[in-house]
């Protein structure tokens, strides 16, 4: 075999000034993630559900509050899913279009899930990273606050909040925001404790980087892998949480709706021969949760290849 002769020119060509793009750990993780079929399928399902929630209402002439008077009183006989009268998913017990209501409910439920997860990521990560990095008394005080808040039966508090301040979507977000970051703060703190003894943190201190910058530049980016995985698993639990509140009748207010409210209504109408009223919301609920779990699993494998 002939060995190619490396002359000066070819070496120069290799070492020319164009900077080689590095492959970051994030890029590595992305490649691993897209190799995982179940996770990609989950991602596609999530994308479809999101598109459905954002643009679904343009496909129907009905709105989520309009009553189709022709259906009233004979929902079981003529209210089923049909393409002729444009009630693709049928109507609910008051003759409102279930397709429009499902679109609207999907929007609320996804929003609750995403807002809950966002609050928990932002507040929980900063709280946990600060407590873990500074340590000592600050850590003790901050984590005891978390412990105290965890000890409060949050379902009870949330129900009280909704009863006292009235049922509104804002109150629901506040309630979810109050509780969702607690677990995240603990996870972030634990992870910070293992990162803060690494030599690159010591190097940063030796360089003279200030404490807030160390947390922002060195701790948080190294936490994010764990945090992202946990937050994708947190979104479905937030959705379930909201559904439960709505199922109890304390969530969103009519005529707005959410998956939990729709499922609750559908379940109460089951014996009148209108299975579509339960079936469609439940279908969306289940595929979304499954998709989130698959994506979360895929992310965990992709971001932490050692843990597989």
């Amino acid at each position: 075999m002939r060995v190619p002769v490396m002359n000066r020119a070819s070496i120069d060509a290799m070492t020319d000034e164009t900077a080689v793009a590095g492959r970051s750990l994030w890029a590595d993780a992305r490649i691993r993630f897209f190799r995982n079929k179940a996770a990609v399928a989950g991602l596609i399902v999530l994308a479809c559900v999101t598109i459905f929630a954002l643009f679904g209402q343009f496909l129907t002439p009905w709105s989520n509050e309009e009553v189709d008077w022709g259906m009233l009183g004979q929902v079981a006989e003529v209210g089923g899913p049909s393409l002729e009268n444009k009630h693709y998913f049928g109507v609910d017990e008051l003759g409102r279009d279930l397709y429009a209501r499902t679109v609207q409910g999907t929007r609320i439920s996804l929003m609750v899930g995403i807002v809950g997860a966002l609050i928990s990521v932002i507040v929980g990560t900063i709280w946990g990273a600060t407590a873990g990095y500074i340590g000592g008394r600050v850590d003790n005080i901050m984590m005891r606050i978390v412990d105290v808040m965890m000890a409060i039966p949050y379902m009870f508090v949330l129900i009280l909040l909704l009863v006292v301040f009235g049922r509104s979507i804002l109150m629901l977000f506040i309630g979810i925001g109050l509780i969702s970051w607690l677990d995240m703060a603990r996870i972030a703190r634990g992870q910070t404790l293992s990162i803060k003894n690494k030599e690159f943190i010591e190097a940063a201190i030796a360089i003279g980087v200030s404490t807030p910058t160390i947390i922002r530049r060195h701790i948080v980016p190294n936490l994010l892998g764990v945090v992202i995985v946990y937050s994708t698993l947190l979104v479905p639990s937030m959705i379930i949480f909201e559904s439960f509140i709505s199922f109890l009748g304390l969530g969103v207010q009519e005529p707005s709706t959410s998956w939990g409210a729709l499922i609750s209504d559908g379940a109460s109408q089951m014996r009148y021969g209108v299975p579509w009223q339960l079936g469609f919301p439940l279908f969306f609920f289940i595929i979304t949760l499954f998709a989130f779990f698959f994506v979360g699993d895929g992310l965990r494998d992709a971001l932490d290849p050692k843990d597989r």
Partner: peptide
């Protein structure tokens, strides 16, 4: 530092 890799932030 002693451990060359551990002294560099892997995300930078």
């Amino acid at each position: 530092f002693q451990d060359p890799l551990a002294a560099l932030n892997p995300r930078m």
